[in-house]
Design a protein around this nucleic acid. Structure first.
Length: 178
DNA sequence: GCCAACGTTGGC
DNA sequence: GCCAACGTTGGC
């Protein structure tokens, strides 16, 4: 599961919060660490996406990922690499409390509740695809071939996805787009 | 297991 | 503020 951080920037948050337009995202997780089956097994199939410790990803979680947005759940560092299904954002960015606790793996003493460095969102499983849409399939489709996740050296664990990509992946999965 | 790409740290 | 060293990510 990924990670995240903040300095203050209430202004930035206000600015992006005014957009009500639906957005799409791709969240990465190492399958052995936290898979879509883990999410499916959660109470209410809901979890908080904690542990993001990258500023670019943090900014998106804090400022851009809104309640109602839809998310691809991507399994990294596994075989097969694939989009395993979809989830919905059920709570927008708030402080990642795991950064405050020294026993946590992603503890960060620089973050504190008054001025949290890192943020997280809550997501709820929408559907696990009957068959995962593999990285190979994504490369072969003309639309999904341009997805950020396929770019060389792409390490961002939270990535924007376009509407066209959202629809194309569902076609590849053989399911109706949410 | 290898290694390229990327982000962060710290000396100067 | 530069940049080398280091650690991590993640595909292959």
């Amino acid at each position: 599961m990924p990670v995240k951080k903040t300095t203050s920037s209430k202004s930035v948050k206000t600015q992006s919060a005014k957009s009500s337009e639906k957005r799409y995202w791709l969240f990465k997780s190492e399958e052995s660490c936290y898979s879509i089956d883990h999410l499916a097994a959660e109470p209410n199939k809901t979890t908080f996406w904690d542990g993001i410790r990258n500023y670019q990803a943090r900014n998106m979680l804090r400022d851009d990922v809104q309640k109602g947005d839809l998310v691809f759940f991507y399994h990294s560092n596994t075989d097969p690499l694939a989009i395993a299904g979809t989830a919905r954002v059920v709570k927008a960015g708030y402080a990642d409390h795991t950064a405050f606790d020294p026993i946590e793996k992603h503890y960060d003493p620089k973050s504190n509740p008054d001025e949290p460095t890192w943020y997280m969102v809550d997501i709820k499983l929408v559907k696990k695809f009957p068959q995962p849409v593999t990285r190979t399939m994504l490369k072969e489709d003309p639309i999904t071939a341009n997805m950020m996740v396929l770019a060389r050296g792409s390490r961002l664990s939270v990535q924007p996805v376009t509407q066209e990509e959202w629809d194309a992946v569902h076609r590849l999965a053989g399911v109706k787009a949410t």
